[in-house]
């Protein structure tokens, strides 16, 4: 990250209706004309496009779709989430890198983004197919002042933010499968993995990892998951700008997270229930060693899934394997 670059991008963006001369830019940035020219070339390599006219200067005409540290900052209106972004073309797993950052004191809001993951993982280290450019793969660090037993609510909060982001950008309303899988037309479009390190009464850090299938074609999916997975592009027949998706996601998350910390889970619960998958359906489930079935009647004030059995008794599930399909 270079602050000169950020400043240059800001200058160009603020003057996007007019041409700015190289001399003016060099005065503003207190750089030589050659240095400015080098920076402009670098921006072009990142996907910015300029109209350059002799004696008039430069005008920014297109911001890049390509995701990079620089392009992610541009237009991001968050206060703290994503103020430090660690971007990789290819990496093992954003979750692993974010966790390493957190262990060595990485600040709240640090985001790790990868274009490709070679070892993307879901829960219990199950593989998460993310070895291509068509998805958004990111993880970020939170250090919430919560008691650890309330932290699981963050997974439901994240799911509502992800659902809202998808709805905002595509106009299509997804469903949330308890607690935090996002589905479009019964197929999985996004997954969330949340890992925490905490003591009895204090949280060291929480790492939220998000994977969303954005511009995948059918051939991007392995045959084994094709029937269960989909992408925004496949469901809506459009391509999406990953940079815009990430920025919208981070902006919505920051606001919702702050609201959750100050007002608690009640607003999250209402939002979550508006996206609930298979509400009022009867499902089979396994909780610990016990197998049972019951009707989904909502989520409790702490995010637990409420199930009503045949006798009309309500159970609160905090952890369960549910047969959804």
């Amino acid at each position: 990250m270079s602050s000169t670059r950020e400043k240059l991008i800001e200058l160009l963006a603020s003057q996007a209706n007019t041409f700015v001369s190289g001399q003016w830019l060099s005065n503003q940035l207190q750089l030589s004309r050659t240095a400015v020219w080098k920076q402009i070339k670098q921006l072009e390599a990142d996907g910015y496009r300029f109209q350059a006219v002799p004696n008039k200067g430069y005008r920014l005409i297109e911001t890049p779709k390509k995701v990079s540290e620089n392009t992610l900052f541009w237009g991001l209106s968050t206060k703290w989430l994503g103020k430090v972004i660690d971007h990789y073309e290819e990496i093992s797993s954003t979750q692993i890198i974010a966790s390493q950052h957190a262990q060595s004191g990485g600040q709240e809001g640090l985001v790790v983004v990868a274009e490709k993951q070679t070892a993307g993982k879901g829960r219990l280290n199950r593989a998460w197919d993310s070895n291509h450019h068509n998805g958004v793969w990111l993880s970020f660090i939170l250090r919430p002042n919560l008691i650890p037993s309330h932290a699981p609510q963050l997974t439901l909060l994240t799911a509502t933010v992800l659902a809202r982001t998808i709805e905002k950008l595509t106009g299509v309303k997804p469903s949330i499968k308890w607690p935090n899988d996002i589905l479009l037309n019964d197929r999985k479009i996004a997954g969330i993995l949340t890992e925490m390190q905490a003591e009895q009464d204090a949280i060291h850090h929480v790492i939220i990892g998000i994977g969303i299938n954005i511009n995948h074609k059918e051939s991007d999916f392995d045959a084994s998951i094709m029937k269960r997975a989909t992408s925004l592009a496949l469901e809506t027949d459009k391509q999406y700008d990953k940079r815009v998706f990430i920025q919208t996601l981070l902006e919505l998350f920051e606001g919702q997270y702050e609201a959750f910390l100050s007002h608690g889970f009640t607003p999250v619960k209402a939002s979550w229930e508006s996206y609930a998958y298979r509400f009022c359906d009867v499902v089979h489930y396994k909780a610990g060693k016990e197998r049972a079935k019951g009707k989904i009647i909502g989520i409790a004030s702490d995010g637990a899934l409420m199930i009503e059995d045949a006798l009309g008794n309500t159970k609160h599930l905090h952890s369960a394997e549910i047969d959804w399909f």
């Binding site: 829960r123 650890p148 699981p152 609510q153 963050l154 997974t155 905490a198 905090h318 952890s319």
Partner: peptide
């Protein structure tokens, strides 16, 4: 030392020995 994981609502809590 991480000694185990307790999972609730897909949040995986790595428990330290303390």
């Amino acid at each position: 030392s991480v000694v185990c994981i307790v999972e609730a609502m897909k949040l995986f809590n790595e428990i330290e020995a303390e």
